[in-house]
Simulated assay, not measured.
Amino acid sequence: MSRRYGGNPAAVIILVAADIASLILILWILFFLLDANRANDLVNAVHHAANWLSGWSRDLFTPDNADWRTVLNYGLPAAVYLVVAHAVAGRVNRA
């Protein structure tokens, strides 16, 4: 990653932050789809973090199927964070 952005630490930090946010959201989607035990501390922590990260998009889509609703409402912010982070990191690198 640092080679792609010429070793610019700001660009790398932006990308790593977006990767972590997206990973948390995707992890929650997997936990939900695989019916993970919500009483588990790890599952609970990931759920709370994912709720915070997806606050702006939660209930944006309201299909009847809970699986699709979760994939759409948590997957959209994961994709947006990655796309925006790559655009911002590219811009930071050019500056």
Rank of each mutant, 00 (worst) to 15 (best):
P9N: 06
A10R: 05
A10T: 13
A11K: 06
A11H: 05
I13L: 08
L15T: 02
V16H: 13
A17W: 09
A18N: 11
A18E: 02
D19T: 00
D19F: 09
D19R: 08
I20E: 03
S22F: 03
S22C: 07
L23W: 01
W28Y: 15
I29N: 03
F31E: 08
F31S: 05
F31N: 08
F32Q: 02
F32R: 02
F32S: 05
A39E: 14
L42Q: 05
V43Q: 14
V43C: 14
H47Q: 13
N51W: 09
G55M: 10
G55S: 12
W56N: 09
W56I: 15
S57G: 10
L60I: 03
L60R: 05
A66L: 03
D67K: 10
W68H: 11
W68M: 07
T70M: 12
T70N: 13
V71I: 11
L72S: 11
N73D: 11
N73C: 10
N73T: 02
G75F: 06
L76E: 15
A78Q: 00
A79W: 14
Y81K: 15
Y81D: 12
L82Q: 07
V83T: 04
A85P: 03
H86L: 00
V88T: 10
V88C: 11
A89Q: 14
R91Y: 12
R91L: 15
